[in-house]
């Protein structure tokens, strides 16, 4: 049996290749590495752990069905799965009514207690460096990014919420992401390459 077949030793790119060969153990390993992060993000966005489970399941089934969608040139497997997860969770939020209540609730918090949202973000136990990078942003940029990304809102909704012009919100998000990238790169976070 001199066959070394240990998926736990494969890098993510090789792991995806193994998934392309219908190796369930490879998918299991991808889940072991990234399942928690995917679930955590889905739960952060959706609130409901059951729906977060469904999204997590979809994300991994999708990797199983279409491993070719992962482009190693564009970043880590973790990034790819989180981007997929975020998109899917946002779709769900926008598709149903639960979004409205949640939005109203958060909107009030955001308007009345500017630090609540921040604490909520801390509660998610983000990777320290990501949290630090967010923390280094000027407040208006940070608020815009948090409301959009963690709240699943469009920039228009964010503009309304903050009572700021749409153009301002767009450019706050854009410049905030640029600034974060620089900070993350400094702290050596692979995601920011």
């Amino acid at each position: 049996m001199g066959r070394r077949d240990d998926v736990t030793e494969l890098g993510d790119a090789a792991l995806v290749v193994a998934i392309g060969r219908y190796r369930q153990d490879a998918l299991a390993e991808a889940y072991r590495r990234h399942g928690g992060a995917v679930f955590g993000l889905a739960r952060r966005l959706l609130g409901d752990p059951h729906r977060a489970e469904e999204v997590t399941q979809e994300v991994f089934l999708r990797l199983w069905d279409r491993p070719d969608r992962y482009d190693a040139e564009r970043g880590s497997l973790r990034s790819f799965l989180l981007v997929t997860c975020h998109g899917r969770a946002v779709d769900l939020l926008r598709a149903d009514g639960s979004r409205r209540e949640r939005e109203d609730r958060t909107a009030q918090q955001a308007a009345g207690e500017p630090y609540d949202l921040e604490r909520e973000v801390w509660d998610m136990a983000l990777a320290d460096s990501v949290r630090d990078a967010l923390g280094e942003l000027p407040e208006p940029e940070r608020r815009a990014i948090e409301l959009a990304y963690y709240g699943g809102r469009t920039y228009r909704e964010v503009a309304e919420l903050l009572d700021a012009p749409e153009g301002t919100v767009k450019s706050r998000i854009r410049s905030g992401l640029r600034r974060m990238r620089a900070v993350l790169a400094e702290s050596g976070i692979g995601e920011a390459r």
Binding site: G36, A37, R44, E53, Q57, G75, F80, A125, L126, A133
Partner: peptide, 28 residues
């Protein structure tokens, strides 16, 4: 570049619920 930062924002330290992998595997 933006997408890479967005993905970094999505990192959390959550644990997936028990049994979720088994459900995924069962549906494969």
């Amino acid at each position: 570049e933006h997408l890479a930062v967005a993905a970094a924002l999505g990192n959390t330290a959550a644990q997936p619920p028990a049994g979720l992998w088994e459900r995924i595997a069962a549906s494969l």
